[in-house]
């Protein structure tokens, strides 16, 4: 028998009290994204998204590796399959694998998570197949190193020294190993593109990499690289959400300052209204 007790009175008899603002925000943001997807599907013009140097540099990095006859290394970080950054990494990996297959450039993918490794294997194999070069796909280059964080870091550093990739692409969720990877890549002279939403690790990437994707820029990668209008529409919707957030923040700061200046009477007035 399920025994439960209703916490607080629901809003409108159905919504969980205390989360209505969250829900409202979600509906507004969803509406922005939906409008943009509809426009893209109807063939209407969708506003262009700003140029992101780190994303523009992906093709350049692979081209450089091709010219030098050296491999490209891609690491999806240490996030598992439930991490949003890993999903962002897959969008990059599909594009990178296709380009590597087209240029017949070796792609080395190192993994820490065995489930991510399994998906990467399939993704890279499929990309080579689509590029018409299934014979160039080498399963030995999609590697599961170890589940241990620093064991993985040691494995990647060893690979960098032995196989000297010309491009080092680090997209995903990284922790303390970020510095080891980025500095290891800088030491072998690889062109480096990195991105993560872990803000603690971002300064390390900024210090040691040629291009760094800041926070949510990695989520735009799939849309940006594929040039798919539906996906670009979602990024534009996301930008509208950001503008709205900024406006709300400015109004909120102004009101908070006014409340501080006017004392509690104004604060109470705002809260009651």
């Amino acid at each position: 028998m399920v025994v439960f007790q209703l916490a607080a009175d629901p809003v409108l008899g159905i919504l969980y009290a205390g989360r209505t603002m969250q829900l409202l925000t979600m509906i507004i943001f969803s509406a922005f994204v939906y409008v943009m997807i509809r426009r893209a599907r109807a063939g209407l013009p969708v506003p262009a998204i700003r140029k992101i140097p780190g994303l523009e540099a992906v093709d350049e990095a692979i081209g450089r590796a091709t010219e030098m006859g050296r491999p490209v290394h891609f690491a999806p970080g240490i996030g598992g399959i439930t991490n949003a950054d890993t999903f962002a990494a897959w969008a990059f990996l599909g594009h990178i694998a296709k380009l590597c297959a087209r240029y017949d450039t070796r792609l080395i993918n190192t993994n820490r998570d065995y489930l991510v490794h399994t998906i990467n294997e399939e993704l890279i194999r499929q990309s080579y197949l689509e590029a018409g070069r299934p014979d160039s796909y080498n399963p030995d280059d999609v590697r599961y190193l170890t589940g241990s964080q620093f064991g993985y870091a040691a494995g990647v550093l060893g690979m960098m020294q032995r196989e000297r990739p010309a491009a080092n692409i680090l997209i995903g969720y990284f922790f303390a190993e970020s510095m080891l990877f980025a500095e290891g890549g800088a030491n072998i002279g690889a062109i480096q593109i990195a991105g993560t939403t872990n803000t603690v690790q971002l300064p390390f990437f900024l210090a040691a990499c040629d291009y760094t994707l800041l926070g949510e820029e990695i989520y735009a990668g799939g849309a940006y690289l594929s040039k798919e209008p539906n996906l670009i529409g979602t990024v534009v919707g996301q930008d509208w959400g950001r503008i709205l957030t900024f406006v709300v923040m400015v109004i909120g700061c102004a009101l908070a300052n006014l409340a501080a200046a006017q004392g509690t009477a104004f604060k109470n007035y705002l809260l009651t209204k």
């Binding site: 994204v33 993704l123 499929q126 939403t197 949510e216 979602t234």
Partner: peptide, 23 residues
């Protein structure tokens, strides 16, 4: 990042972004 995560989650939930299912 929070806004970006929301948009990314929407793309995945609506089946617009499918890289994880193969290129």
């Amino acid at each position: 990042i929070y806004i970006g995560t929301f948009a990314a989650a929407m793309r995945i939930a609506l089946g617009l972004e499918r890289a994880h299912l193969g290129s």
